[in-house]
Design a protein around this nucleic acid. Structure first.
Ligand SMILES: [Mn+2]
Ligand SMILES: [Mn+2]
Ligand SMILES: [Mn+2]
Ligand SMILES: [Mn+2]
Lengths: 228, 228
DNA sequence: AAATATTTTTAGGCTCACCTAAATATTTTC
DNA sequence: GAAAATATTTAGGTGAGCCTAAAAATATTT
């Protein structure tokens, strides 16, 4: 077994954010992008990138951005696993709203105990997705991404789609979606894209017809079901 | 509502340990006692005592030890509440052994979310005691200490007693107690105190007769049930 | 290609929570 | 009550993780 290196909360957060910003295509992540996401100055980012590079957790060449090494990615995925399992716990067992769990999970994801997280996984019955529809990595680090996911903003007119994920970062968006009756699993009929502002005329099946802004639609992940 | 001051993990640990070392009699706590318990040098303790004193969380006069203020005690009790609720969660919901939970709870007790802890309390059905028999403060901070608790080491010969608590600090003691079949609620008949080493000849009712050392007996809390 | 704008790094500083070594206060022993 | 032992504080220092200001590299515009 690889030596258990203990990383600080800060180091763990950097790895997690690098993983997320790199995306599935594993793009290089820029210093400024990290500074934005981590709410720190670029100079602070540079400091940490040097440290993570020394520890072989990222590849980093001056001015060229950074990317996770295998070692770094393994750790990043475990942190994401913890984050999403904790979010699932909060929603399914403690009846938190989906807009309330992210901040608490940001703390809980740093608890060090492999046994805890595996037991939690079992207690939750090995959930595949978190409350926002994001995939939960298994204990080996495998992530099964939904293959045919698109943004609602990009859905074809006259399609019926199913909501499979929502962007979790903004509690106010999540509360709004709650209020209009849009949740994971909701069916949505896409009627019309208004040319002026690209807002969408939709029906949340079984709930209501309404307009939603492009910005909202851009934060909702859906999969195609059928033509109207 | 009092302003939510955010304390570091370190500050929280100091308050918790001061509370525990002061005991129910609220004795002054010495710098060295804190250094021992917190595994830090006395000079580091002094630094922190000054800081906590500036924040009005403790009363502190040079060379005279320290004690919690009301404000400090309120916080300390909330940390202990969190610690014990998490321990209870780990044992009752995730089937951890009682010797495995303390270290994880040391981390979990610092998670900042009043809602989380209240929901957890509810989820656990408002437990009154943690897996080691220690009382769990309620959300208002009230602690109901068991009134007639004594150490097994001090129990009278020919008494039958019930185990109500165990010292949680040593996993190896807890594993040993597991192995000999001694748990919370166990009845114990006290037959004889061996003069040479003050070890006890006992019967764990329904399990076995055996000898236990004074040191072990000193870490088991019991209440008197009846004379043999 | 040069000028300008943007991004990133370097240099130097700060706070936190710890440390060692030395000084000082308190307690215990004779 | 003085000497010795112990407890505590002060003084000065360290690394982690942040900061600002200035310098250097890269990207964009003209
Ligand atoms: Mn989240
Ligand atoms: Mn999520
Ligand atoms: Mn404990
Ligand atoms: Mn306990």
């Amino acid at each position: 077994m690889a030596k258990q290196e203990f990383l600080s909360h800060s180091e763990e957060n950097y790895l997690k954010v690098i993983f997320q910003l790199a995306g599935q295509e594993r793009l290089k992540v820029s210093t400024n992008a990290l500074a934005d996401k981590l709410c720190a100055k670029p100079s602070s980012i540079t400091d940490m990138l040097k440290k993570l590079s020394d520890k072989k957790l990222i590849s980093y060449k001056k001015y060229q951005g950074c990317g996770l090494t295998v070692k770094g990615e393994v750790i990043a995925i475990q942190i994401i696993r913890k984050h999403r399992l904790w979010e699932t716990f909060l929603v399914s067992k403690l009846s938190f709203g989906w807009e309330e769990v992210h901040d608490v999970a940001e703390q809980l994801e740093h608890i060090q105990s492999i046994k805890l997280i595996d037991k939690l996984d079992e207690f939750l019955d090995f959930p595949k997705f978190d409350p926002h529809g994001d995939p939960i990595p298994d204990r080996a680090g495998n992530i099964t991404y939904r293959k045919s996911k698109i943004k609602l903003a990009e859905a074809a007119i006259n399609a019926v789609v199913e909501v499979v994920s929502v962007d979790e970062d903004s509690p106010s968006l999540l509360k709004y979606l709650d209020e209009i009756g849009l949740r994971l699993g909701s069916r949505i009929k896409v009627f019309e894209r208004i040319p002026f502002d690209s807002s969408l005329k939709i029906e949340i099946v079984g709930v209501q017809k309404m307009y939603i802004s492009e910005k909202v639609a851009d934060n909702i992940g859906v999969r195609f079901i059928e033509k109207l």
